[in-house]
Structures are given as C-alpha cells and as structure tokens.
Simulated scan of single mutants.
Amino acid sequence: MNDRTRPFRFGVVAPIRSDLPTWRDRVRRIADSGYSTLLMPDVPTWQPTLGPTLATAAALTDLRIGSWVYAAALRDPLSTAWEAHSLSVLSEGRFEMGIGAGRPGIEVELGLPAVSPAERRTRMRDTVANLRKFDGPELHTPVVMAVSGPKSQALALEVADAATFVLPPDDDRVETTQRVRDFAAGRDLELAQHIAVIGDSVAPFMAPPDLDTAALHAADSLVVLPSDPAAAAEEIQRRREEIGFSYFVIGADFADTFAPVVAQLAG
C-alpha cells in the first residue's frame, strides 16, 4: 500500500500526572474514543518508568501500547530490547517500540556521561537488532523510529517499520514536505506526525511549556493543528494527501476535545 493511502490511526501520549484512579479512567476514555495507541514518554524521574506503566495500560483496555520514545542516550540496547520484547509478549502483540536518539543533553542532566550522535545511532541499531533476536520468527514487534538528519533517516529506512520526524518548532512547511516525500520514496514506511500544539495550547511532555505558539502559527508549522475539529480533520487529510502522514500522535490533555476528529477519520 502506498503511504498516502494508509488508514489513519491516532495515538495519545498519556503519562501519569494524577492519582492512579484518574489516570486509569483517562486510559479507558482514550480507548472508548477510538484512538489506536496509548503511548508513554521515556523521561526518568518525572513519572513511573515506561515498561510497567504500559503493561498496566495494556491490562486495562485493548489499546495498542508503545514507547514515545525510548531515548537511546539513556538506554542499554540489550536491556531495552528485552523490555520491548517482553511488552510485546505480555500485550499479545499490541506493543510498538518507538525509539530515538534522545533529547540533546538529557543524559548529562541526569549525571551520565555525554553520548555522541554517532553512539546514539549505534545504540538504536543495536536495540532493533537485539529485539529481532528476542522476537524470533514467531513475533515481529513494530519499530517506530524518530529521525531528524540524513543518517538517522537512513537507519530508519534500513530497520524500522515507521518513522516520525523530529521537527524544529519553526520548521518550514514546504521544505519539510519535500524532505519527508524524498524520505518516503526510499521505502514504504508508515509516517507518523508528533503534534505538540492544538490551537494555542501546548500539551505536557509534547514540547517545552514556553513554546511560542504565535510563532508556530505564523510559520504554518506541522507540529500544530487547529482547535476546531472540522478544520483539524481537513488539515490531517491534507497532510496525508500531500506529504504521506497517516499516524498522528497527540498529548493526553487534547484527547477528549480531539475525539470527534478521531471518530471521523480513524480506520
């Protein structure tokens, strides 16, 4: 299937930012609203660790679950692959492994040695290779790779099932469109879009809270969607047709208000 004709699907990044009963209710509402995937960020010290939290979410609903995304700067390839495989087994094939290089400097902030971009890419490659060994011939855990420059894009084309582009807030829409089109011509991968802003609101864990939303709107940034459901649905359809994006990931704070868009487009 050509990327531009893939069915839409929608994921929600839903970290635990409340008491557990409230979070569990939120996860169930997300499932009832037609979203495909419940995702967790990989940010140490901010919330419970990703693996047990996703396993808990998988037991609550029939949603797919996923990491958005494992940060290679913080992760050992073997243990990360083991965790990802375990989540696939425990969720009966509903886990997808999102992996990326990790935010610049995140490891230093946590008191760890600095990890070069080249080493981060090596860890990403090794994690996927180990995951394939753990999975064996009977299981294939989907890999969503966060990419930016040519080297990470080449790696995704080689080993991933889907890709999401790490876009700067002031990304140029025309330039980004051409970059993603050129990338997608290399192989039939699912293309995911990380949405940090809806209207003028920034979702926690999706972007820095001091993000200049006015500048994003002025730049026609792809990390933004309109707050009006009809306009958002139209824009999402445009992005699939013109660029090839079919998997859209939003923050949990937007899940309820965005549900009409999901109801209209999902599947």
Rank of each mutant, 00 (worst) to 15 (best):
V143G: 15
T164I: 11
L157V: 02
D182N: 13
L155E: 00
E158P: 08
V174H: 14
A162R: 05
A160M: 06
D188E: 12
V197E: 03
K151L: 10
T141W: 01
F205E: 06
S148Q: 15
T164C: 06
A156W: 04
V197I: 06
R181N: 13
T176E: 12
L167Y: 04
A162I: 00
P142M: 05
D170K: 09
A192M: 11
E175Y: 09
R173A: 15
V202D: 01
A196V: 07
P150V: 12
P169L: 14
R187Y: 03
V166K: 00
G149D: 14
R187N: 07
V180R: 04
A156R: 09
D172V: 01
D172N: 08
Q193C: 14
P208Q: 07
V159Q: 12
T141G: 07
Q193A: 15
D161S: 11
V159R: 06
F165C: 10
A146I: 11
V180S: 09
S148R: 15
F165D: 12
F165Q: 14
Q178S: 11
F165I: 15
R173D: 14
V159T: 13
G186K: 03
P208H: 08
P209R: 12
G199I: 05
V166D: 08
L155R: 00
R187P: 06
P168Y: 10
V166Y: 03
D182T: 15
R181P: 08
A154I: 09
G149W: 03
F205I: 04
F183T: 06
I198Y: 09
P169Y: 15
Q193R: 13
A207T: 04
L189Q: 13
D182P: 06
M145G: 06
V202L: 00
E190M: 03
I195Y: 01
D200Q: 10
D171K: 02
A196Q: 08
S152N: 10
A203H: 04
